[in-house]
Design a binder for these strands. Structure first.
Lengths: 151, 151
DNA sequence: CTTGAAAAGAACTGCCT
DNA sequence: AGGCAGTTCTTTTCAAG
């Protein structure tokens, strides 16, 4: 487990807001020189605390106005069945996230669609026909808020 | 709604894999000059297709080995109650994501905890005491797979 | 759209406290 | 650890076709 001091935590908090901050800008904010900030950021990457950076796309602006969370319960849960299900799920382009979970459901999926008609097509043609699929529960996203998290 | 051509889509796909790609590298892969690729990326930002870049942190390596998705049903759902609930949820540091949803539940939360004992504390002390909270359902994350999405 | 080039800024290195 | 000075590389902008 990676140990961080307060300065590392400050850096992660700043980068969570905007991952494109330069080492110089981070140093300015925290009272560090550019190389000192740069070395810390590099160490956070090298140690594996930071895995990388990902794009934050505006799917609504890109024509995908509907986001739905699906809870999926499998009818049969052998090891083969899990692998079959996961392979088939990966073939659905509208699936952004596949969570294998423990609890009332076996998988949670994040799915985007152009509109509700488009979502209905995905649900009927792609999701309900997945191998081993049992019960499916859906939640339509109204609004999303990201929080800084516990760091 | 933002219109993209095939090249824009290729750029977004490449940047989804690695958001740190330089304009020169993108151009090399797609057969564009560095300035041409740079202008396109800038336009994707300016038009709002790309909102920004976010850190991909390894929460497990940082000591938060447990991730749980909570479905929350409110007991009373007036407008005041939604605002009260949301304000109180924002005060829980372990909550990373707050989704207001339509369906069987009213909210979906993504929560991280150091371990299951820590999660139990958060659930009992912070979540179950939220204003207006009714039923709560939990799914513990076993594994997560990100997919490129439908672009 | 291209190439070429210049200016600005960020990343990286070595050495010192 | 952190700072300073300097080098290298990328980004960003412009000119011209």
């Amino acid at each position: 487990m990676i140990r961080l001091d307060d300065t590392d935590r400050d850096i992660l908090r700043a980068l969570q807001e905007d991952a494109t901050l330069s080492a110089g800008e981070i140093g300015r904010r925290l009272g560090l020189s550019q190389p000192a900030a740069w070395r810390r950021v590099k160490r956070l990457y090298d140690d594996g605390a930071i895995r990388g950076q990902r794009l934050d796309l505006d799917h609504e602006a890109l024509g995908f106005g509907v986001t739905v969370f699906l809870g999926v319960k499998l009818a049969t849960k052998g090891r083969v069945s899990l692998e079959d299900f996961e392979r088939a799920v990966r073939a659905i382009p509208e699936v952004q996230l596949v969570h294998h979970v423990l609890g009332l459901y076996d998988y949670r999926l994040r799915v985007v669609a152009r509109d509700l008609a488009d979502f209905e097509r995905i649900l009927r043609r792609r999701v309900m026909t997945l191998p081993g699929v049992g019960e499916v529960e859906a939640n339509v996203l109204l609004s999303e808020e990201r929080r800084p998290g516990p760091l």
